[in-house]
Design a protein around this nucleic acid. Sequence first.
DNA 1: GCCAACGTTGGC
DNA 2: GCCAACGTTGGC
Length: 139
Amino acid sequence: MNYWLFKSEPDTWSWDQQVAKGEVGEEWNGVRNYQARNNMRAMKIGDRGFFYHSNIGKEMVGIVEVCRESSPDSTTDDPRWDCVWIKAVEPLKRRITLEEAKIIPELEKMVLVNNTRLSVQPVSPEEWAFICALGGVDP
DNA sequence: GCCAACGTTGGC
DNA sequence: GCCAACGTTGGC
């Protein structure tokens, strides 16, 4: 099992919208960055990730699960781009802000803290467990 | 709204 | 294959 983090501007696609999709989940489309795409290609069904609100909030808000492995992005005909589907699992009982992550020594290596521009990124098992504990949810 | 960091494109 | 120009992301 691998762990990830998905960024979205809540203006465009929010956690609430993701939750509303229920068990079916939603295509994580629109990614046009090779690194982010490669991360999605590496995902397996059942992998988990944090759902992060960029720009507004700048915080991790919930847990999602990969429910369909990488397949063509329906929003483009360009064969370079494909994406996974994810579904909401549960909200964090306490949201973790970027500001907070930056000052926590255990999280100083997080991609979120060090590469602000990567929209789909890996999270280490240690970071995953640490943030789940902070967020009040089971890892 | 600004701008730093980063990616991509395309001319050479 | 280099690099200048340009575009985008996202924190501030």
